[in-house]
Amino acid sequence: MEFRDLKAQYNKYKKEIDSAIQEVINNTNFIGGKEVNVLEQRLAEYVGVKHCITCANGTEAMTLLMMAWDIKEGDAVFVPDFTFFSTGEIVSLRGATPIFVDVDRDTFNTDTTKLEKAINKVLDEGKLTPKVIIPVDLFGLPADHMEIEKIAKKYNLRVLEDAAQGFGGSINGKKTCSFGDAATTSFFPAKPLGCYGDGGAIFTNDDALAELLNSLKVHGKGDNKYDNVRIGINSRLDSIQAAVLNVKLTAFIEHELEDVNRVYKLYTEKLKGVVETPIIPEGYVSSFAQYTIKLKNKEERDALQAKLKEEGVPSMIYYTKPMHKQSAFAEFDYGDNNFEVTNELCDTVLSLPMHPYLSEEEANKVCRVLCKTLKVIKNE
Rank of each mutant, 00 (worst) to 15 (best):
K378S: 15
E2K: 12
S92N: 09
N224I: 05
E60N: 14
K153R: 11
P314C: 07
A251H: 00
L370R: 00
E311L: 06
D144C: 10
L308V: 07
S286M: 06
R4I: 04
F332Q: 09
G180Q: 11
K114W: 09
V132G: 01
G232P: 07
T373H: 12
G180V: 02
Q290S: 15
D111V: 01
L209V: 06
G200D: 01
L93S: 09
G88S: 13
L350P: 03
P130W: 11
I151T: 14
I317H: 03
K375H: 12
V263L: 08
E269H: 12
V275R: 04
N338Y: 07
R368F: 12
G58N: 11
K15T: 15
Y13L: 12
M62F: 10
E40H: 00
L39W: 11
A182Q: 03
R105L: 15
E161D: 06
Q9V: 06
K270Q: 11
N224L: 03
I119H: 14
P314Q: 10
N297W: 07
E147K: 13
Y291C: 00
S92G: 11
L43D: 05
K375I: 03
A68N: 05
E310S: 06
V91L: 11
A243E: 07
I133Y: 08
L64I: 02
P189L: 06
R301C: 00
L216S: 09
Y10K: 04
P98S: 07
N246E: 15
R262P: 00
G48F: 08
A289N: 14
D302F: 02
D206Q: 04
A164W: 00
Y196H: 13
